[in-house]
Design a protein around this nucleic acid. Structure first.
Lengths: 228, 228
DNA sequence: ACCTGAACACCGTTCAAGT
DNA sequence: ACCTGAACACCGTTCAAGT
């Protein structure tokens, strides 16, 4: 049933059509079912026909990952200041990621979205941070913290998590709204920290004395000696 | 070359031996090379022999994930208070995860470590949060935020990330020490937020006005109506 | 340039044996 | 109970054709 075509005949495939079919297949059957062969079956072509439009399965998924980020809403210009803008931007990202929860682990597993939409997102964040008074290395640190937190939380929202054994009774499934509140709270803490401590050099610890790791922690591999 | 054994003869396999070989194989050749067949090859048995000691590949990896968490150091009892203890605990977790970076995406991809070591970690965190004055639902929120942040940051430390296009020159690989500093900063912000706002109901927003999502964000699927 | 047939080098897992 | 041989139902990708 897959094909009634002869080597010379075209099927009218497009790179965009392949991407769209991949999106549909993922939505209908999940990540495990997103195989090149299943994709070819759905498009009614031979498996290797896809390689005329896509370099590899990895490349295909990279494109899908960046495509998702296009849905993120840019914050309205200066609604309530740059921090509110950042809050809005990260919350929109969180919502978009939740709508494509199957893909979220892939953001973390691979090099992590380097397409044009990811670039645009990073640009916007840097701009908003600058308007908040956070520049240079501090801005890049804040960027990393916000992205890590947002993608990480999205990854954990759908699937269950290391929960405390206490109150097993109350461990019923959390609703999407409750997780959104949870996400929002942590996000506010991070933003508060970014604006208040974002410009300090970070070598003095107001809460803690020791910054290094305990011996045996296993991280002392390529510490760059940091002279002076 | 794989076997010179006859159906009746034993190979002396143990569940522990299989796990150890899986750890070695992962360390030597990476996650992609950790297949049941490669594992069997290394143990010099037929591929299906493994299923006498392990229910499935998924079960095997679940065990490996929890095994890793055994390396996390419990904080010294009340060194500088419970918040310092939490900082120490999360930093140790971060270091342990970095030492097994290949496994980190798996924590996020699957249900996320439910073994005895994960339980122990959750217990300790809940205890420390309670000593910090954070109880009940607020404690569970804080727990989720801290775990998400720690695993998420570990996932992003080894592999590159959505970086800002600004200052491309300065985008050289960050060292392990710099990423540790970055992790530590965000962790301090979170801990500060947890202790200061941890007990508020969270329905008033000191920084932002709007809490809901913009229409079209795509999250309005199963909001539980929250009556009253 | 775009597609097919066939094949390569794999997977995880099951089933029926053997001792 | 523990292991093997053989097989099932798959993978992603390549190579040599055909028009």
């Amino acid at each position: 049933m897959p094909v009634r075509r002869i080597p010379g005949q075209r099927a009218g495939l497009t790179r965009a059509a392949v991407l769209a079919a991949a999106r549909d297949l993922l939505a209908e059957s999940g990540l495990a079912s997103l195989t090149m062969r299943a994709l070819a079956r759905r498009l009614d072509v031979a498996p290797n026909a896809l390689y005329s439009h896509v370099a590899s399965k990895t490349g295909l998924i990279d494109d899908m990952l960046d495509e998702v980020l296009a849905e993120v809403q840019e914050p309205a210009i200066d609604v309530e200041g740059p921090i509110a803008g950042l809050h809005q931007l990260m919350t929109s990202t969180y919502a978009v990621l939740l709508a494509h929860s199957d893909l979220v682990p892939l953001y973390l597993a691979r090099q992590g979205a380097r397409g044009p939409n990811a670039q645009r997102l990073g640009d916007t964040m840097i701009t908003l941070l600058a308007r908040s008074g956070v520049h240079g290395p501090a801005a890049r640190e804040a960027l990393r913290v916000l992205i890590v937190y947002t993608i990480g939380f999205a990854a954990f929202t759908t699937r269950p998590l290391i929960d405390p054994p206490i109150e097993i009774e109350a461990r019923q499934q959390l609703t999407t709204g409750e997780m959104l509140d949870n996400f929002t709270n942590g996000l506010r803490w991070l933003l508060a920290g970014i604006v208040t401590h974002g410009n300090s050099s970070g070598n003095d610890h107001p809460v803690l004395g020791a910054a290094g790791l305990q011996p045996g922690g296993g991280i002392a591999q390529e510490q760059p000696a940091s002279p002076g």
